[in-house]
Design a protein around this nucleic acid. Structure first.
Lengths: 182, 182
DNA sequence: AGATATTGTTCTGTATATTGAACGATTATC
DNA sequence: GATAATCGTTCAATATACAGAACAATATCT
């Protein structure tokens, strides 16, 4: 995959997300329509300033033009996971998620009490959430994909749909990592 | 800060890290020395293919040419932290770390037994580690900045120096997030 | 020391990215 | 239904990024 074709796809995708016409984006970015048109068709070899102008007009950081997205469910139970090689047998380490390039990963500590259900509306498209339960038992996930997690369980799910959190024990503590396209 | 000046600094820094001469890098990347020279001096407006070639020759992803690093210690005790507003009082959420642009954040689950001390040599410059203790008590951090962490504690520290992990209880479980410049 | 590479910078010709206008095709407005 | 606006593409002219050679300065040889 050549860099230009990657960029081409990214621009097309972002422009449709921003609901802008090619002409409008070109005008806002201060580049010629023809330039943008060629770019979106994967032709040419744009300069960095051109890309910068386009990214700014789209309100996204430059690096977002190089990423390749993905989104899926992953659940790793407390006793599961690919253990990494470790010289000391007293230590086991499991890679729960490797980070795609150019994404934000904000880290939260969350405590939740039994009784109420915490609803969260859909985050921006492409958002992914990672939950890791430290103590207690929680029911979590998109409304059509709720999972029950025990201590040590890890769950990754799309955050760009309505989802909820609920504690099934008196108190629950979990780490929430909110991953969003920058 | 203009994009070209950012790129200029990044290339200079990376080239010195790779211990390459300007001529050697230009040759490996397949671009003229003059082009590279101008770039490093912040002149011109490079095309994406030129940057791509240089990044490849430096063995780094393109997006690394746009980042601005930082590194510091942060520790948030179990009962500390800036709680975010929450409609339901049954839920408290604390932002432990917001993610700088263009960095990898790989997530690990780690269990460690009492007795041995797990040593880790220095990771690439700019690496930051986040540790969140789920159960047990651990002593963790760079050798000159070891911290004792209890359940619920969060600790962020530079990973580009020698550091170690040790369990002070029979068993400990913590989440380790390895943040690296990419 | 003398000779020879190698360092990074500056210059000029050429290739090409960018522009602005003209284009037909669609959609909106009256 | 006719007019007007906007859509995205294609074309010629211009601005400029790139390659290659010449350059002085430093480093590495015999």
């Amino acid at each position: 995959m050549t860099p230009v074709s990657l960029i081409a796809k990214a621009i097309v995708k972002e422009r449709s997300r921003a609901k802008m016409s090619l002409s409008a984006l070109a005008a806002k970015a201060g580049v010629a329509k023809s330039t943008l048109s060629q770019l979106e068709n994967g032709h040419g070899n744009p300069s960095i300033e051109t890309l910068w102008a386009i990214a700014s007009a789209l309100d996204i950081p430059l690096s977002y033009l190089f990423e390749t997205p993905k989104s899926e469910f992953v659940i790793v139970r407390a006793d599961e996971g690919d253990h990494l090689a470790s010289d000391a047998s007293s230590l086991t380490s499991t890679l729960l998620a490797d980070c795609p390039p150019s994404r934000r990963r904000d880290i939260y500590r969350v405590t939740i009490k039994k009784g109420s259900v915490r609803k969260s509306s859909a985050h921006p498209e492409g958002t992914v959430e990672h939950a890791f339960v430290c103590s207690g038992k929680v029911r979590i996930g998109p409304d059509d994909n709720l999972k029950e997690l025990n201590e040590g369980d890890y769950f990754r799910f799309p955050g760009d749909a309505e989802h909820s959190y609920e504690s099934l024990t008196d108190n629950s503590l979990y780490i929430l990592i909110m991953e969003s396209p920058v």
